[in-house]
């Protein structure tokens, strides 16, 4: 499995896959995609690195503990859910205001942040499982 062709290609494929994952997550609200899909795509990228580079590469790809991602994602989703309570709306009420960025009106639903939280959790969970089941050394 540890062919040098694959290893070389991974240098390009891996960042592109991660980029694709984020893209899928961002467009999820209006097109097929979303946090779960994006997270799983990122997880596939991690698995591919694990396949091509063998054991002990994960710590350099992901220099922090995956549970940081899980905690961060849960916090992000949770905060997105709780913030409407402060304004007197029910839990997890979403808004979709237009944000003017570079002269363009972009539709940014608050649910997007929720979805990004989901993405982080899925990536964290998948990475954690690959770390442990794949017999990796714990990250810092």
């Amino acid at each position: 499995m540890s062919s040098s062709i694959l290893r070389t290609a991974m240098g390009l494929i891996f960042p592109l896959t991660l980029l694709f994952a984020v893209y899928m997550a961002l467009k999820g609200h209006n097109q097929p995609g979303g946090g779960f899909i994006g997270g799983l795509i990122a997880a596939v990228a991690l698995v591919m690195v694990r396949m091509s580079h063998g054991r002990d590469v994960m710590a350099s790809v992901m220099p922090f503990h995956p549970r940081l991602l899980i905690a961060g994602g849960l916090a992000m989703a949770g905060v997105t859910g709780v913030v409407p309570l402060l304004f007197g709306h029910p839990l997890l009420t979403s808004r979709a205001p237009y944000v003017h960025l570079l002269g363009e009106a972009i539709h940014v639903p608050t649910a997007l942040f929720f979805d990004l939280g989901v993405l982080m959790v899925v990536v964290g969970v998948a990475a954690g499982m690959i770390f442990r089941l794949g017999g990796e050394v714990d990250p810092a």
């Binding site: 999820g28 609200h29 209006n30 097109q31 097929p32 995609g33 979303g34 946090g35 779960f36 899980i70 905690a71 994602g73 849960l74 989703a77 949770g78 859910g81 839990l91 997890l92 979403s94 808004r95 979709a96 539709h107 639903p109 649910a111 929720f114 979805d115 939280g117 989901v118 959790v121 899925v122 964290g124 969970v125």
Partner: peptide, 26 residues
């Protein structure tokens, strides 16, 4: 506020469910 109905269900209509789900995942 989204056209992908499945995603809107997941993150909005049934968002609480999803929140629980990612908690379970964690």
């Amino acid at each position: 506020g989204g056209t992908n109905v499945v995603n809107v269900i997941l993150v909005d209509f049934r968002g609480f469910d999803t929140l629980g789900e990612i908690t379970v995942l964690g």
